[in-house]
Amino acid sequence: MKKVKKQDITRLLSQWQKEFTVFVPSRENGAAEMTVWDGQDVSFLDWYRNTVIPPKANFLLNMEIMFGFRKEDGSYNLELPAAATQKQLVFGIRPCDARATSIIDMVFKDAYEDKYYLNRRENTLLIGMGCLNPYDSCFCTSLGLGPAEATDVDLMLTDIGDDFLIEEVTDKGKELVARTEGVVEATRDDESRAGEVKDTAYKKVTRKIDTREIEKRLPASFDNEEFWEKVAAKCVSCGICTFLCPTCYCFDINDEMLKGDGARYRNWDSCSFPLYTKMPAENPREEKWRRVRQKVHHKYTFYPSLFDVIACTGCGRCIRLCPVNWDITQTLESVPAEAATGTEKK
């Protein structure tokens, strides 16, 4: 393993900036998110716990031009935007968000490749940074993750005092380290120090859910209308928990036209919105409890059934940022042990 002195982080990022568009955590714009590094500011090392806007926004843009169109003499010409091949490097991504990115990769690779997402993904290096001060809303350890574990990233950094220990997780990461100045070999002491730091961080995550129990109970709860009505009662149907969820990927497609020129865009959409599933005559999820049920089941039942993984990494944003403190862990823990006696008509 390698290490780098904390005071050399600027030097590290400056080298990488020559090759990549470097993204770092920033709260300059009023809400913490990954933004393009200005070449100097590393103050995030002091305040950064996690971003409000999840790093999925680097791959699934909340507004993206899919193609442009121009009408000339009644005929349309379609123009694809230049493929997103600019190499980017996301510095400081937390393990929960890195894992979340791997999880939604599955959707965008599945059956039909989504070039917009995948181009960005393939051209991005993820430099993880262990999360040593998790929020009280975090529950990553219940989902097989550790707040400072090296997963789903190219390099993993762990704060060991004066230095960051660097784990080279992928070949891409290894190659990057090899051509980076200021990185030195770590000692065995450094490695054991990092181990201690990781253990301490792990123990700091106190919010727990029992995923085995949930996977058992949740499918049986599906038709329990009374349960879902009760847990959905205080939801206000805004888009915060889904838009800011690192594993929520649902989107909408919209056109915009200005004087014969226009473009088709993709933007984020949310299953919390009543009109999301609206058809001319019917709306399968008009009632709020159906939408709340959809959200929870998508993450904990449907996604595991399709891709063999729970689409939640316990990042806690949906709890932390919810205007009414709707808490998915409470809902999951309160799912009745007994199957409902078929309250919903088929």
Binding site: V107, F108, D110, A111, Y112, D114, F222, Y249, C250, F251, D252, I253, D269, C271, Y276, T277, K278, M279, P284, Q294, H297, H298, T301, F302, S305, L306
Partner: peptide, 24 residues
């Protein structure tokens, strides 16, 4: 079945019935 199938390829998320995507 009819659903609001926006992408047509099982990604955008609105046409599911449980783990079934009607469009796909």
């Amino acid at each position: 079945l009819e659903k609001r199938m926006k992408c047509g390829i099982g990604k955008c998320g609105r046409c599911n019935i449980g783990d079934i995507y009607v469009c796909r």
